[in-house]
Amino acid sequence: MERGTNEASKKRMKPNVEEKEEDQVSRGNGMEITVNEQSEANVNGSEEMELNISHILEKIDRFTQLVSELLESGKTMFRELSNEFEERLFTIHKEQMEKWQEEIKELRLIDASNEEASALLNNARFLLQNPLFES
């Protein structure tokens, strides 16, 4: 793209330079040197412009590289955070399940103890209501 733009500007400038040279040649040989100096200044200006453009393109490349690196590091960071989050969530879930399983075990033990106590009380009630001993 640079060359296309550069060539297009040279093509546009070339007729102007040629026209000026023709005008200067028709006026005299002393003026011919001035026209050559002006075309050299235009070429120098173009080289300077190309240098400036190449600096800008280098900045674009560096910035693009920086953005790419930041994007990759961000993706990596989010993957790591996602993995850590997932692991922590699984750990929390496992701990909560273990806690509730322990509560269930305790409730079953309490229930079994209550059933035994209830059975003993029912037996005692039965014995008290139906005395086997006759006096």
Rank of each mutant, 00 (worst) to 15 (best):
G30R: 08
G30P: 04
M31C: 06
M31I: 06
M31R: 07
E32G: 03
I33M: 13
I33S: 13
T34C: 09
V35H: 08
V35Y: 09
N36C: 14
N36W: 13
N36V: 14
N36S: 15
E37K: 08
E37V: 07
E37F: 08
E37H: 06
Q38S: 14
S39R: 14
S39L: 09
S39N: 13
S39Q: 14
E40W: 09
V43W: 13
N44K: 10
N44F: 04
G45Q: 10
G45C: 08
G45R: 10
G45V: 04
S46V: 15
S46Q: 15
E47P: 02
E47H: 08
E48H: 10
M49L: 13
M49N: 08
L51G: 07
L51H: 12
N52S: 08
N52H: 04
I53F: 03
I53P: 00
I53L: 04
I53E: 04
S54Y: 01
H55M: 07
H55E: 10
H55P: 00
H55L: 09
I56M: 01
I56K: 01
I56P: 00
L57H: 03
K59S: 03
K59F: 00
I60Y: 00
I60S: 00
R62A: 05
F63E: 03
Q65N: 11
Q65Y: 10
Q65H: 08
Q65A: 14
Q65R: 11
L66M: 05
L66A: 07
V67S: 02
V67P: 00
V67H: 02
S68K: 07
S68G: 09
E69K: 11
E69C: 04
L71D: 13
E72H: 09
E72M: 04
E72C: 05
S73I: 04
S73G: 03
S73A: 06
G74M: 03
G74H: 02
T76L: 09
M77K: 08
M77F: 10
R79G: 13
E80N: 07
E80V: 11
L81M: 10
L81P: 03
N83R: 15
E84F: 03
E84Q: 04
E84W: 02
F85N: 09
E86V: 02
E86A: 06
